[in-house]
Design a protein around this nucleic acid. Sequence first.
DNA 1: CTTTTGGTTCTGGAAAAACCGAACCAAATT
DNA 2: AATTTGGTTCGGTTTTTCCAGAACCAAAAG
Lengths: 161, 161
Amino acid sequence: MAMVEEDKLERIQQKVEQMGVFFERSGFTPMTGRVFAYLLISDPLHQDFFAIQEFLKASKSTVSNALSVLTTEGLVDYITFNGDRRRYFRINTAGWLNSLKTKVRRVTVLGDLLQEVLKERNQESCPAFNNELKKIVFFQNYLSKGIEQLIVEWESRQANT
Amino acid sequence: MAMVEEDKLERIQQKVEQMGVFFERSGFTPMTGRVFAYLLISDPLHQDFFAIQEFLKASKSTVSNALSVLTTEGLVDYITFNGDRRRYFRINTAGWLNSLKTKVRRVTVLGDLLQEVLKERNQESCPAFNNELKKIVFFQNYLSKGIEQLIVEWESRQANT
DNA sequence: CTTTTGGTTCTGGAAAAACCGAACCAAATT
DNA sequence: AATTTGGTTCGGTTTTTCCAGAACCAAAAG
């Protein structure tokens, strides 16, 4: 019955908005976030340019740009079909996983910066704070090593299944 | 010799800028990022309002706002001295650690959203992708549980030293 | 070789974010 | 009680971000 289908569309739209703001908060533009969210929930999951544009009611240029950043980040790729010129864009789960990993590894960057700060700071002038700082650096290192280890374990577990 | 001191100032300024963009990229405004960076490297590490303003060459309002977001986020607090009306702002290492933890825990939010997506998706129509999605949800959960565990261990290790 | 299709790139404008200066305020000082 | 000090809050300006529309382009179709 049509009623149910409309409900579903509405639910999906809401979810796309909701997930959209999540991705927005992690660094994408609103539209890029929504495109990613839509590809995540759309059925089938490969959607052509026009379908995306239609669903999000956005301009061609905006959709094009969104797709281009998503593909260059490796989060999205596309497939094609024989005798059909269109590209069908879809989530690239492997690439997404990769980007998650590198994002998590960003923890180490801060650690490196703080190391440099410690090198710069006058060691004698304020030992108490320097120790606090060292503690944080240590925590950073501890975390990043631990996370790295988690990832390694997960990958090896994936490998033999 | 003055030469050396000037070099040092310049190095510190550079470092503040550099760390500033790091903090900016993790959600703060440029100035807020720089204030945090400056408090991290300044010596002594408690600095009054005017010193911060002077170093960053920013307006009072901007510095005030930056300090207010940093303090409400718990990253910065201030101390006072007898017979001195000024507040001396400084990094709150404990609070910073806390905010790092909650940030790391944000990983789970995405997991929850994806769970909902999975619930919404037609299970029959594309099992292969749904499995990929499940894999990512699983990875998320795996990571967040693992990180949580790392933090717990770290805390217990801190407790008995 | 002209037209259509499936996009991409290049403006320009609207909206939002970041910052500044001035007005303001409470507590301390004169 | 008037002034100074140490900030905070308010309004406006600049800068940046985001998006739309049009021009553009290459490949395919007619």
